[in-house]
């Protein structure tokens, strides 16, 4: 299983290195969202207060694009079918695609946080750095697992482009809430302190574990006939 995990993750990252779709299209899309939020809210005070939520909203919408892209690669020329015929371990396929997704999402989230610091005048509190790292790690893992699971579910469906957000967004709502609250605590937004954020990291960890284990065990039946 681990060999297939490494193989799939390496392949997806190599595809991105060659095509640069995430760098040339998804990152500008996410950055544009951050700018549009600033235009729409048009108040430094409000923006600083809601910055953590906007960062995670932008990450979530970008995730939809990355997941669509990740599974379009497999569907375009029947590669997912070929992976099944090749007898590739389904749990390994799930973990490999989730790992590549997490790596791409992590880069994007760092850029989004940087944009929030610059555009929304947010600040990282010294005591909140560990919390911020923990939040990013667990939330990214949770989003990547859910994205891969629902990407696999929607890949063979009619109208998958519109079906995916409909299926996925309600499921990732706990990540949006947890990651936003934990990031607020890390940035000291609305008077929150770093200690307020750790219970949310616990929730994000539980979410990631449930979807990581569930996805690994169930992905085979999702992509099989």
């Amino acid at each position: 299983m681990w060999a297939i995990t490494r193989l799939l993750a390496g392949k997806d990252l190599r595809v991105e290195m060659r095509s640069r779709v995430i760098i040339n299209q998804v990152v500008p899309f996410a950055a544009l969202m951050m700018v549009m939020f600033a235009f729409a809210l048009d108040s430094d005070t409000v923006l600083a207060r809601v910055a953590p939520g906007l960062v995670w909203l932008a990450a979530m919408f970008s995730l939809l694009v990355i997941v669509q892209r990740s599974f379009a690669l497999e569907a375009a020329d029947g590669a997912l079918d070929a992976l099944r015929v090749a007898g590739a371990n389904a749990g390994g396929i799930f973990l490999g695609k989730a790992l590549a997704l997490a790596a791409q999402l992590a880069v994007l989230e760092v850029i989004l946080l940087g944009a929030a610091l610059v555009l929304y005048n947010s600040h990282i509190v010294g005591s909140g750095i560990a919390l911020l790292v923990g939040t990013y790690f667990t939330a990214t893992a949770g989003l990547a697992f859910v994205g891969t699971l629902y990407g696999g579910l929607a890949v063979g469906a009619k109208g998958r482009e519109t079906l995916l957000p409909l299926l996925m967004l309600p499921v990732v709502a706990p990540v949006l809430i947890g990651a936003t609250r934990a990031t607020e605590a890390a940035l000291g937004t609305n008077g929150a302190t770093a200690t307020d954020g750790w219970p949310w990291v616990g929730l994000l960890t539980l979410f990631a574990v449930v979807f990581g284990v569930g996805g690994t065990l169930s992905f085979g039946s999702l992509i099989d006939e």
């Binding site: 060999a3 297939i4 595809v15 060659r18 020329d77 079918d81 070929a82 007898g87």
Partner: peptide, 28 residues
């Protein structure tokens, strides 16, 4: 893992090179 099915599609990754594709499927 012991059969090769080549249908109407080729099961290739368009953004990867020929060598990348053959290496990937061989590595499975």
């Amino acid at each position: 893992s012991r059969v090769g099915l080549l249908g109407h599609s080729n099961g290739l990754y368009a953004d990867l090179t020929v060598a990348d594709n053959v290496r990937f499927w061989g590595a499975t």
